[in-house]
């Protein structure tokens, strides 16, 4: 015989359902991205560009998506899979990080190019009846270096850049 659902299990169920979603969702941030470091890597050292020669800052939309199993960062159309937070860390106080690496090997010359891009940021979001507020502050670094035998030229040779980003919650 079908019986109507008792009220208490309904409330428990709703509570479990919503609790399971705690923190899930997407937060959009409008950030300003500014270059703070731009250097050429040469065999005899690093040669950095004067700050006056940096490209001007740009405004971008970043989005942080939190799911049950994974957290993602969207920068323009690019997706970054964020490193899991350690243990019961509070995402409001622990920096989120992600890395992308690639290695190009030329079997003919033996030249090898290692590239690594790293992003790290801290986002603090507060939700209330009046809306959602929050900030995102972090950096994005890129480093690419070619190494190899003499046939590759004078190595290492490459470049590295560091950008800082800072912004606040915005609409999608």
């Amino acid at each position: 015989m079908n019986r109507p659902l008792p009220m208490s299990p309904v409330l428990v169920g709703l509570a479990i359902g919503f609790a399971g979603c705690a923190g899930d969702g997407i937060d959009f941030f409008e950030v300003v991205r500014s270059r703070v470091d731009e250097c050429a890597i040469r065999s005899n050292g690093e040669f950095c560009v004067e700050p006056e020669q940096f490209d001007p800052p740009t405004v971008e939309v970043w989005a942080v998506e939190t799911r049950a199993e994974v957290a993602l960062l969207y920068v323009d159309e690019e997706v970054w899979v964020l490193d899991p937070l350690p243990g019961d860390a509070d995402p409001a106080t622990v920096e989120r990080t992600a890395t992308k690496t690639s290695v190009v090997i030329d079997g003919l010359t033996g030249c090898r190019t290692d590239a690594v891009r790293e992003v790290g940021f801290l986002s603090v979001v507060t939700r209330s009846a009046f809306g959602t507020t929050g900030t995102l502050d972090g950096s994005l670094s890129v480093r690419s270096v070619l190494t190899g035998p003499e046939s590759c030229g004078s190595t290492p040779v490459g470049e590295r850049t560091v950008d800082v980003v800072s912004g606040t919650v915005s609409g999608p």
Binding site: L5, P6, S8, P9, V10, V12, G13, L14, I16, G17, F18, G20, C21
Partner: peptide, 13 residues
């Protein structure tokens, strides 16, 4: 009761 709670969780999700 437990089944009802689980059903509600799934529905909520």
């Amino acid at each position: 009761r437990r089944t009802s709670a689980l059903v509600c969780s799934a529905l909520t999700a």
